[in-house]
């Protein structure tokens, strides 16, 4: 995988502990710019933990300790002095369960831009519209922008959350099993959306669903009990796994 692709995020010897529990062991992984990288593995293998450490969401968990380097465009994000608010603006996140705020659709999308100091109705209107178009949900909600976001279906809510994430113009979008709470039709819509998202953004996604990983991702990393077992182009990893454990997992022998 040494083509002329640039690296967006690079992790070096990352170890993560929850108290005494060694949850991530020596992870070295490069996430490529404008590609979709999928993290797969059985429950509790550390894939979500790893994803969340990419924009320091683990900071919120007491007793969580991290060593090693996370480089975003070559800059370490865990050194003192890093403003996590600015970091999370550049690396946005979409969660497993759709979590729109209990506000109107418009206010949900405008939330991030307002946090970062964007004022003025015309400016916000434009951002809201562009973000909703970008998340392929504009046509479904354009007539009820000032209705509660909680009145939408689960699939629409998740696309609202994607729109909310891209409204702050991040460089990377992290997705933590974004379709696991959704029906197949909504899942398909979000998978289609991800393909257009990677034109503008670098996407990292955790998924339980191996078919999903093969359908959408360019690269896949396989995690097992805190270790990254194998990382390769998706088609290579699924057709010619190098490690026995990867093979056992993707052929359904465990997990």
């Amino acid at each position: 995988m040494s083509e002329n692709e640039s690296i967006k995020i690079s992790t070096k010897n990352v170890n993560l502990y929850y108290g005494e529990n060694h949850a991530l062991k020596d992870i070295n992984l490069d996430i490529k710019t404008n590609k979709i990288t999928a993290f797969i593995g059985p429950s509790g293998c550390g894939k979500s933990t790893f994803l969340k450490s990419l924009n320091r969401m683990n900071d919120l968990i007491p007793g969580c300790r991290i060593t090693g380097q996370f480089l975003l465009d070559g800059e370490d994000i865990y050194v003192p002095g890093v403003d996590t608010n600015l970091l999370r603006r550049r690396i946005g996140m979409v969660f497993q369960k759709p979590n729109p705020f209990p506000m109107s659709i418009y206010d949900n999308i405008a939330y991030g831009p307002r946090v970062h100091g964007i004022k003025g109705k015309a400016k916000l209107d434009r951002i809201v519209e562009e973000s909703l178009i970008g998340a392929a949900v504009f046509d479904e909600v354009k007539d009820r922008l000032h209705k509660s976001a909680l009145s939408l279906s689960g699939g629409q809510q998740q696309r609202i959350c994607i729109a909310r994430a891209i409204a702050v113009q991040p460089e990377v979008i992290l997705m933590d099993e974004p379709t696991s709470a959704l029906d197949p039709v909504s899942t398909l819509k979000i998978e289609e959306l991800m393909n257009t998202l990677k034109e503008k953004y670098t996407v990292a996604i955790v998924t339980h669903n191996m078919q999903q990983a093969t359908r959408i991702s360019d690269y896949t990393a396989f995690f097992l009990v805190g270790e990254m077992v194998e990382y390769a182009k998706t088609e290579e990893l699924f057709s010619r796994p190098q490690d026995k454990r990867t093979e056992d997992y993707i052929t359904g022998r465990f997990g």
Binding site: M57, T84, F101, R164
Partner: peptide, 22 residues
């Protein structure tokens, strides 16, 4: 719900902003 907090923090909102708005 934790989801509201994560959503807000994940957008880069400072803690006090999250408390006030969410």
């Amino acid at each position: 719900p934790l989801g509201y907090r994560e959503g807000s923090i994940g957008l880069g909102a400072p803690k006090w902003h999250m408390i006030r708005t969410v």
